[in-house]
Design a protein around this nucleic acid. Sequence first.
DNA 1: CAACTAACCGAACGGTGTTTATTTAGGAGG
DNA 2: CCTCCTAAATAAACACCGTTCGGTTAGTTG
Lengths: 256, 256
Amino acid sequence: MAPKDAKAVKRPSTKVKPPAKAPRKGAAAVRRRLAPEERRRQIVAAAKSLFLEEGIDHVSMRKIARKVGITQAAIYQHFENKEAILFVIIEDFFSDLLHVFEVAVSQETEPAARLRRAMRTYIDFGLSRTEEYRLVFMTPMSGLVRAGVAIPRTEEAKLTPSKGSLAFGMLDSCVHQVVEAGATRDLDPDLVSEAIWAAGHGVVSLLITHGHFPWTDKAALIDLQIDLLLEGLLPAGSPARGENRGGGSSCPFGPR
Amino acid sequence: MAPKDAKAVKRPSTKVKPPAKAPRKGAAAVRRRLAPEERRRQIVAAAKSLFLEEGIDHVSMRKIARKVGITQAAIYQHFENKEAILFVIIEDFFSDLLHVFEVAVSQETEPAARLRRAMRTYIDFGLSRTEEYRLVFMTPMSGLVRAGVAIPRTEEAKLTPSKGSLAFGMLDSCVHQVVEAGATRDLDPDLVSEAIWAAGHGVVSLLITHGHFPWTDKAALIDLQIDLLLEGLLPAGSPARGENRGGGSSCPFGPR
DNA sequence: CAACTAACCGAACGGTGTTTATTTAGGAGG
DNA sequence: CCTCCTAAATAAACACCGTTCGGTTAGTTG
């Protein structure tokens, strides 16, 4: 059918590669070398700022290089590829998430309230850093996630836990406390953690990708989502039913 | 000769432009013209099959064209751009979702069971068509969604509802039936619809992007998620509590 | 001060979506 | 039958993208 044509064409674009003895042409371009760690820092910083200036889709190696003041190729001296840069950004994201989690959880003593606070914190954090959230949780990246960023519960992770593992672990322990306190039906805590994560992620990701959907009331939706989940955990005639409501989002939706 | 073309803007591209008298080079390539609607059909079909063969990221205009047996540029005779092709795929996706919804809902009479069935149907459907799901619900596309695919509740949508609107409307009406039957706490049905959608979406999208996360039990997670949400709707001492459980997924996870 | 390491650059490769001017298939009208 | 004309299809280019490679050179070290 299709000619297919293979690659026989050999791109007749002149070249022929003369010795290219090109000496220093201009006097202006003074090439400044930097310590590798400093360059790495610059590159990551440039990538991050491009991230929230132009969004995840418009971060290119060329733009990063231009922002830093070097050529694209120079980046590869410091990072194996683009994913390696994003990897650092993801690690920082998880690091911040972990910190925010720790602060939030430390402010509540009662297990149920603590879990509620954790869930709200996750949602607010995600909505305040939408571009990074998209990168971390809404983009399937082969090597990245598997590389240890967000794989808790495995033996490997228990030995050298990543920030992602620790962050998930915090949610996990909040749920365990609630379940073990006997305040819920008889449920598998691990499964509950995953369900709560999924529910929170659902709200965050839908609000991010479908921000123009005619939502009835975004803040109320978040409140209700948290509420439904936690109510669903309680046993039939629980006296806690209906308590601990409210506590609206302290985050008026971050950027955008 | 004598083409009416009076403008001859001549893009400032160095010209050079030899007459390019290129005659039929090979004997094989017979240029066949097709009726526009037939070509459109071919292009969409090719795009769809590439979608599930190679995934959303590897569908390019060149690959589509090659599969159809034409050049890239020819596609632009029939579609304004790549998004326009994806648009058709999205419409078909919603059309199928709507149909599946209708069948599912028609098989249940009791409102709560009907809602449970709808939620499970959504999740199973999403997991059976992951690449399209990613395109429709996990990719922010400027013009696309706003173009009327999934914007229910607006006046415009009520006049000429899209398949997406109708699909969401089915979930909406399921929720309304349950709430109006007095089987739940006093909640805004629209808000509940959105929360249930978000929860279902959370499970589907996390399972899609993080399929390698060490999930405790994917099927059990889906069951629990549905369960928590519906339990959370019920009033405090509801006699329905704990009923209507189970009814595990009939879908053993579609492709991949 | 020479030698060496590695940060850096220029140029290219193969890929993407899209646009342009040109060619030509195939139906309609004389 | 034979023109004419519309529009489907083409080839070639444009401006991007991530990545690679060989040569250049800055800055340290022996």
